[in-house]
Amino acid sequence: MRSGLLFKLALLLAIFGILSSGITGYYAYTANRAMLVSATQSDLLTAARGVNRRMVQWEDEAADDTLLLSRLVQVQVVINQRNGSEARRARDELAQAFAAMLALHPEYLQVRLIGTADNGLELVRVDSRSGLTARVDGGDLQEKGHFPYVFETLALPAGQIYQSSIEVNHERSSHDAEGGPA
């Protein structure tokens, strides 16, 4: 009898012991998990803020570079004189300036001057891929008047910058940026 009681008591105590350690363990686990989640969220937030800051900075820099290129004197010559040796020379010089810009900024994939005449035909275009620049010219130039980055830009006052929405580029050409970000 006595040994039976003792056994039951021991069993009860053991169950309490297991229960209490189980509960303690469970609380420790949930508390730790909550702390880990909170720490990770905080890390992610900091990283996202950092990326956001860099993105804004890149956008500002790209806008400055665009304004700089647009004020080159050759741009006026190319826009106002479509033919002739002076226009051809100006286009070549612009292409060199675009290539220099692409060489300085490997993150840029393309620099173009697009006219409003001829359905938004590209006038000067230089593409960059894996650090190599390639000029696209003649019959390989394309009409871009139907893309928002042309018709929305034309609706802006002179000197303002149009920033396209960030999406995957589906345009294709001989040296294309297809499949990359645009």
């Binding site: 359905n119 019959g139 394309q142 009409e143 871009k144 893309f147 345009e171």
Partner: peptide, 9 residues
């Protein structure tokens, strides 16, 4: 269509 859409001459 991809060529047309991209603006090929």
């Amino acid at each position: 269509w991809q060529k047309i859409y991209s603006g090929d001459l």
